[in-house]
């Protein structure tokens, strides 16, 4: 197999731009998804049955359908309905955030419920209210346990952001496919894209490992 470096060199600026957008989409998905996930996770734990049911439906839908379908629905359906026209970047960020929110909600719930109920009781028996107890006693402990599954979810999100290419969001895979169809090449664009994704995901898991170890020794 011959490997044409020259077309790769030509595409370097595009791959750079695409990588930056991939990182941007992932970070947006991670941040918005984490906030959403926290809210939805707390909502699902509420004693109010109808509200908890609604959040449950949300989680079931977004965890139970492919991101591919969700992106198409949001790009061609939801976003035009909201702002009159569509926009790949906006649609991709919305879709990634919503699916991340669903998974992260479950991570939060599991993390919070894994804390011994004696912790909440001790805190409440000292006169602290529910919110104070959550903030000072439960969440700091739950957070440590959430780091590994959250890290997994962030890595999945980086990889899944590649699906944004199907609605012409100019991220990494978009340029990979552009290169592929311009020169009818397979190995150069896709191996390069794979390598860049690998660098992104391994860097993230390296950072998360360090964070985890730092917190463990505290």
């Amino acid at each position: 197999m011959d490997f044409r470096l020259d077309i790769l060199v030509e595409y370097i600026p595009f791959f750079l731009k695409g990588t930056l957008l991939t990182i941007g989409l992932s970070i947006a998905g991670i941040i918005i998804g984490t906030v959403l996930g926290l809210l939805i996770g707390l909502g699902k734990m509420m004693r109010n049955k109808p509200i908890a049911f609604l959040f449950n439906c949300y989680i079931t839908f977004f965890r139970g359908t492919p991101l591919f379908v969700q992106i198409l629905l949001i790009h061609f359906g939801v976003v035009p309905m909201l702002i009159g026209h569509t926009n790949g970047i906006v649609a991709s960020i919305i879709a990634l955030s919503l699916i991340a929110g669903a998974y992260i909600a479950e991570i939060f719930r599991a993390g919070i419920q894994s804390i011994d109920k004696g912790q909440m009781e001790a805190s409440r028996s000292l006169g602290m209210n529910h919110v104070q107890s959550m903030k000072d006693v439960i969440l700091p402990q739950a957070f440590k346990r959430m780091i590994p599954p959250l890290g997994n979810e962030f890595i999945v999100l980086i990889k899944e952001s590649s699906l944004a290419a199907i609605v012409a969001t100019p991220e990494l895979m978009y340029y990979g496919r552009a290169l592929a169809s311009q020169y009818y090449r397979v190995w150069e664009p896709y191996l390069t894209a794979a390598l860049i994704y690998l660098v992104l995901t391994t860097s993230l898991s390296f950072l998360l490992n360090r964070l985890e170890r730092r917190l463990a020794t505290e």
């Binding site: 011994d116 004696g118 912790q119 009781e121 001790a122 805190s123 028996s125 000292l126 006693v137 700091p140 402990q141 440590k144 505290e218």
Partner: peptide, 12 residues
């Protein structure tokens, strides 16, 4: 004030 059998100190 309450003291529990399992102490329930805040480990963090």
């Amino acid at each position: 004030g309450m003291v529990f059998q399992q102490f329930n100190l805040f480990p963090h």
